[in-house]
Amino acid sequence: VTTYKLVINGKTLKGETTTKAVDAETAEKAFKQYANDNGVDAVWTYDDATKTFTVTEMV
Rank of each mutant, 00 (worst) to 15 (best):
V1P: 07
V1C: 14
T2I: 13
T2D: 09
T3A: 04
T3K: 05
Y4T: 01
K5R: 12
L6E: 01
V7Q: 04
V7F: 05
V7Y: 06
V7G: 01
N9Y: 13
G10M: 15
K11N: 10
T12L: 12
L13V: 10
K14T: 09
K14E: 06
K14I: 10
K14H: 11
G15F: 15
E16G: 08
E16R: 07
T17P: 03
T17K: 12
T17F: 15
T17H: 14
T18Y: 15
T18M: 09
T19G: 03
K20E: 13
K20G: 04
K20P: 04
A21T: 03
A21C: 06
D23S: 08
A24D: 03
A24E: 04
A24T: 07
E25N: 08
E25D: 08
A27H: 00
E28K: 11
E28Y: 15
E28N: 04
A30F: 15
K32R: 14
Q33C: 07
Y34N: 02
A35V: 15
A35G: 03
N36D: 10
N36R: 15
N36G: 14
N36P: 07
N36K: 14
D37W: 14
D37C: 14
D37K: 12
N38T: 12
N38H: 14
G39V: 13
G39Q: 07
G39W: 14
G39N: 09
V40F: 15
D41E: 11
D41M: 11
D41Q: 09
W44S: 00
T45A: 08
Y46C: 00
Y46V: 00
Y46I: 01
D47P: 00
D47T: 03
D47G: 01
D48A: 12
A49M: 09
A49K: 09
A49C: 07
A49L: 11
T50S: 08
K51I: 01
K51R: 09
T52E: 02
F53W: 05
F53L: 02
T54V: 05
T54Q: 04
V55W: 06
T56R: 05
T56G: 05
T56M: 07
E57R: 06
M58P: 11
V59K: 09
V59L: 11
V59F: 12
V59H: 10
